[in-house]
Simulated scan of single mutants.
Amino acid sequence: MASRASSEAPAAGYSVPVPALPRLGRTWYRRGAPYWLRRARTTVFVVLAMALFSLFALGLYEGVRDLLPSTVRVVWDGVQVAASVVALVWGAVAHRREHREALLDPPDPARTARAKRDHDRRVPGRIALGRGLVLLAAPVMPAFAAYVAGRLLFWLTVREYPSEAGARRWLEEHATRPAAQQ
């Protein structure tokens, strides 16, 4: 029988293994270089995705904007800039509130894995629905892109994800220290 990998071994002084979390694996426990490399990789990917989404939103808006008379364009552009600033702040504040609430009752590792599976299962349907809605939302796509960017920027800059807090709490509740240390 092969020995367990060091990441599968129980944490020092504990009798249960450190649970693996989606996107972070078991690196969340020590928060060393592999953890920060995973967070940096996620950040780079999300920033690139936000840039592409923003370019798409601006391109779609430009198509709608070309249909407007020239005097209305100036006013509409000003409205879009103001709406985008408000939406960016609104997205960040909304995610901050949700994050704070999630930290008050963080999910355990099983609930985190279940939520990830449920999310992955719903994505194709949401993509299909989004394709139809994006045409209806074309006139306000910059504000929508700003809202999404605000949420994602805050998500990328949190100190600890709720899944980490929940896993740490679960580990403390389910771990038993050796009798010599009690």
Rank of each mutant, 00 (worst) to 15 (best):
A2Y: 15
R4H: 12
E8P: 07
P10G: 13
P10S: 12
A11E: 02
V16W: 12
P17M: 01
V18D: 01
P19Q: 06
P19A: 09
R26T: 15
T27N: 00
T27R: 02
T27F: 03
W28L: 01
Y29T: 06
R31E: 11
G32H: 08
A33F: 12
A33H: 10
P34Y: 08
P34E: 04
W36G: 05
L37R: 09
A40T: 12
R41S: 15
V44F: 15
V44E: 08
V44I: 14
A51E: 11
A51C: 12
S54T: 10
L55N: 13
L60T: 14
L60D: 12
G63W: 06
G63E: 07
R65D: 11
R65I: 08
D66K: 09
L68C: 00
L68R: 04
S70V: 10
T71V: 10
T71W: 08
V72C: 04
V79A: 06
V81M: 07
S84L: 03
V85K: 02
L88G: 05
L88C: 01
A92M: 03
H95P: 00
R96G: 09
E98I: 06
H99K: 02
E101P: 00
A102I: 02
A102M: 06
L104W: 05
D105R: 15
P106Y: 04
P107W: 05
A110T: 14
A110G: 10
A113V: 08
A115V: 08
R121D: 08
P124H: 11
G125I: 03
A128I: 12
L135Y: 13
A137F: 05
P142R: 02
A146F: 07
V148E: 09
L153T: 11
L156N: 11
T157W: 13
E160Y: 08
E160M: 09
Y161R: 13
S163M: 15
E164A: 03
A165Y: 07
G166E: 03
R169V: 04
R169G: 04
R169Q: 12
L171F: 05
A175S: 14
A175F: 10
R177K: 15
R177Q: 14
P178E: 12
P178W: 11
